[in-house]
Write a protein that binds this DNA or RNA. Structure first.
Lengths: 248, 248
DNA sequence: GGTCCTCCTTGACCCAGATCAAGCGCGCGA
DNA sequence: TCGCGCGCTTGATCTGGGTCAAGGAGGACC
């Protein structure tokens, strides 16, 4: 199985693909050894729920591979995605019992988990972890605020363009794409998940994607494979004219 | 002047009204003394801009009294508020040069500022500060995500009720209101600022406030003074049926 | 090869909230 | 005392995106 290979492969933190971006990024080797003692891996299949909102969490951890989403749901069923968790992102909140959100695996997912109590104790003694977690949390806060602008003030077309540009940009930084020219990537989300992210209906998402395709802003192969011939054009459509953001 | 009184009054951290809620909440007296060396107060009048988005920030700090807002603006003028800063809230981001948002004083405002460099150095040596800042940042992230649900999925009426319930709740915790019965408070925001917070127009804000008044959910005296006769009714209107949140 | 099923697209219609416009009331400065 | 401006309200109309509804396309399993 792929999962077993992954587990075997990441058994030592030194080999870990997210070693330099996750909570443990600043740890020294002695600190890593201490982390190894309290860590374990968990795998989830696409579609599986990692934690339900309100459930007690006895671990925190990092996404090693795959994608998960953080969603909030109202009693009547309306849902809003409030976070998209990519490899190296942190899940869970030290110092809190239950989860505030549903965490769902959108693709097959591998997580590196730490039992919560020992992790919290370790955080107190290891400033490198707390510092890195603060930095990551501040980045997430910035991303959340960026998203508030998207949700509150952008049109449906701009919302879709914003989401595409975020995915494209991230994909480019992970996979080291050619600096200029066409960007190519796969959408990791269904139309419904995109709608939940953007505060739209899935019909509107579908229509706007079709419109962007018709207007030549993007090309589609199948439902998920996207080519962006001109990234700055996409940025314009998103309403973020600061086209320098690409390699920030 | 009121400002001078305030300055004199807060000169020593021991007397500070936000002593136990701000970044310095966990500091011991020796640590406070070190902070006193790098701190200074600044006052702003209602309407004044504290920092422009993109400007270099040479300080970070806490709101001591008054209210400020964090807003993002698009080139064409659309604006979205992304944060509401109340006494004890922290402004600025250690480890970043410029501000990502406009910070504007909505009321007269007093801030306790620290020069950025020394503060950053101190943070490295004083885990109590970094720990508290992490905790505060995680709380802000939760608030931002809560707000994403409001922006993405709630109706105009629910948005207004959500905002009122947040203001009411906060006001109750600050001013120690009677546990049950009517809540009374003043709106610290203009209709336009509320619209910017909620992703609405000011006309819609006005209409929905009138509607809530007509339906007896709130009472109004003047434009700003609000009485909430039944808080759980307001929560229902906000779509958050978890009516236990009052004293969390 | 057929038949589900899930994900997606497209059309027709509707409505919440935006837009455009007029006017009120209160505080402030002359 | 008068006007004038700002914050707010209310009305009339318009429209972007929601809702309802009907298929299409690509797997996976029989």
């Amino acid at each position: 199985m792929l999962q077993d290979e992954t587990l075997a492969h990441n058994h030592h933190c030194g080999d870990c693909p997210i070693r330099h971006r996750a909570v443990c990024a600043r740890c020294e080797s002695t600190e890593l050894e201490r982390l190894e003692e309290i860590k374990y891996y968990r795998s989830f299949e696409a579609g599986q729920t990692v934690i339900w909102s309100g459930d007690k969490m006895d671990f925190v951890g990092s996404v090693v591979s795959g994608i998960a989403t953080l969603t909030q749901t109202m009693e009547d069923g309306r849902t809003q995605m409030v976070g998209l968790l990519l490899p190296s992102d942190f899940v869970g909140r030290p110092g809190r019992e239950g989860s505030a959100y549903d965490v769902v695996a959108t693709t097959d997912l591998v997580m590196c988990c730490f039992r919560k109590k020992p992790f919290e104790q370790m955080m107190e003694r290891t400033p490198h972890i707390a510092q890195r977690l603060l930095e990551m949390t501040l980045d997430e806060l910035d991303a959340a605020r960026e998203w508030m602008l998207v949700l509150g003030r952008k049109t449906a077309r701009e919302k879709i363009a914003s989401l595409l540009s975020i995915i494209a940009r991230r994909d480019a930084t992970l996979n080291l794409q050619p600096a200029r020219g066409a960007l190519v990537f796969d959408l990791p989300l269904t139309r419904e998940a995109m709608a939940d992210y953007l505060g739209l209906t899935l019909e509107t998402v579908s229509r706007q994607i079709s419109a962007l395709k018709r207007d030549g802003v993007i090309q589609l192969e199948g439902k998920r494979h996207v080519t962006v011939p001109d990234f700055s054009r996409l940025m314009e459509e998103a309403g973020d004219d600061a086209d320098g953001g690409m390699f920030a």
